[in-house]
Simulated assay, not measured.
Amino acid sequence: MQLALKIDVDTYRGTREGVPRLMEVLKKHGASATFFFTLGPDHMGRAIKRVFRPGYLGKVSRMSVVEHYGIKTLLYGTLLPAPDIGKRCGDLMRKVRDEGFEVGIHCYDHIRWQDHVAEKDAEWTQQELKRTVDRYSQIFGDAPKSHAAAGWQMNREAFRLMQQHGFSYSSDTRGTHPFMPVWEGEIIACPQIPTTLPTLDELINRDAITLDTLANYMLHLTENQPEQSQVFTLHAELEGGKWMPVFERLLEGWKAQGFELVSMAQYRASLKAEELPLHNIEMREVDGRIGKLAVQAQAYP
C-alpha cells in the first residue's frame, strides 16, 4: 500500500525556500517524493486577473495568500520583474535530484499554462511544452521522464505530447486510480497517475475544517480507504512553508496507517501499463478549486 507524494513547485520563493525545507523533513521521516518544477519566469503576480472569475475571492478569503506567497511574489510580472526560476535555482534543482529525489516538469510559466492551455491550439501547446522540456534538459543534462500539469489544466494536444515525448507517466488529472487516458475517443499511450486526495488548500476553512483539524481530516480519509494506494499533491509554497507542521503530522499518520511513502516513479514502477484500464477524461469542477480541471471519468468505451 503506497502513498505517492507529488510536490508542485510553482514559484521562485517556493523553489528557493520551500524546496530545501521539504527535502529536510522528507529525509527526517524516511519518505520519498517527486518534485515537479516550474522552470521559467515567475509571473505569479499576473494571477490578479483571476479576481474576476467566479469563486476566486471565496477561495482567497479561506487562506492568507500574502502569508503563504509573500508580497514580492504577488507582484512578480506586474510591478516587479519576474525572476527566471530555472536560471536562478538550477543548482538547487540539481541538488534535489542528487539527494535522491525524483524530479519532473511542471511547466515553463505557471500562469501561462494554467490560465490559457485549455483554450489554446496545438501550435501554442507544442511551443510551450518545448520550452519546458528544453529548459529541463539544460538544467539536468537529460530529457524529462514525467510531467504534472499546472492547475490540472490540459488540452488534446497536451495529452498527445505526453505520448510523443515518451514520458514514463504523467500526472495531469484528478481521479481515483492509475489509468490510460482517453480524450474525446482518442487513446493516449502514456499512463496517467491522478491525484486521488484533496489538497490542503481545497479543504481549509470549508465544512468547519481549520488548521488544527486539517491533518486529522485528511488522515480520516485515508484510514477509511484501506488497501488503496493514494497520490497526494502538496505545494512547496504551503507545506514547505507555514503548513509544514500539518505536513509532518500527515507523514507520521500515514506511516502509522501502514503506507509506504514513495515517489511517483516508485509508484509507477509497481504498475503494468498493459493492465491499466482505459478511462475518459472530462473537464469539470472539483470542490475547493476554481474553474474546471482534467478529471478521470467513466471507463472507456
Score class of each variant (00 low, 15 high):
Ala265Gly: 10
Ile71Phe: 14
Arg97Gly: 02
Gly175Tyr: 02
Ala273Pro: 02
Ala148His: 08
Asp115Ile: 06
His147Arg: 01
Val295Pro: 01
His110Cys: 14
Arg13Leu: 08
His116Glu: 12
Met63Gln: 11
Val117Met: 03
Ala208Asn: 14
Asp142Leu: 06
Pro20Glu: 13
Leu79Gln: 11
Asn155Gln: 03
His177Ser: 12
His29Met: 10
Gln225Gly: 02
Glu248Arg: 04
Trp113Asn: 06
Ile204Val: 13
Gln164Arg: 14
Asp287His: 11
Pro277Val: 02
Pro83His: 00
Gly291Cys: 11
Leu80Phe: 13
Gly55Glu: 07
Asp115Val: 09
Asn155Ala: 04
Gly86Met: 10
Gly40Leu: 12
Arg46Phe: 08
Glu67Asp: 09
Ala236Gly: 10
Leu203Asp: 09
Ala208Cys: 06
Leu214Gly: 11
Gly30His: 07
Gln126Lys: 14
Phe159Ile: 03
Cys107Leu: 08
Val262Ser: 06
Ala215Asn: 01
Met1Asn: 07
Gln257Ser: 09
Thr78Arg: 14
Val65Ala: 03
Pro20Thr: 13
Gly175Trp: 00
Gly240Met: 00
His43Glu: 13
Arg94Phe: 09
Pro81Cys: 00
Leu211Trp: 05
Gln192Leu: 03
Thr222Gln: 09
Leu214Gln: 02
Gln192Trp: 04
Gln153Thr: 15
Arg206Ala: 05
Arg16Ala: 12
Ser61Met: 10
Val182Glu: 00
Thr173Ile: 08
Gln2Gly: 02
Ala294Pro: 01
Asn280Asp: 12
His165Ala: 07
Thr125Ser: 05
Phe159Asp: 01
Gly258Leu: 07
His279Pro: 11
Asp91Met: 10
Lys120Thr: 08
Glu17Thr: 08
Asn216Lys: 15
Lys27Met: 11
His177Asp: 14
Pro191Gly: 07
Glu99Val: 06
Leu276Tyr: 01
Ile209Arg: 05
Ala150Ile: 05
Ser270Glu: 11
Pro194Leu: 09
Glu275Tyr: 08
Met218Ala: 13
Asp134Leu: 01
Ser229Arg: 06
Val295His: 00
Lys292Gln: 12
Lys72Pro: 04
Trp183Cys: 10
Ile7Asn: 04
His279Ser: 14
Glu260Trp: 07
Ala149Gly: 00
Phe259Ala: 07
Thr11Asp: 02
Ile105Pro: 00
Ala4Thr: 08
Phe232Ala: 13
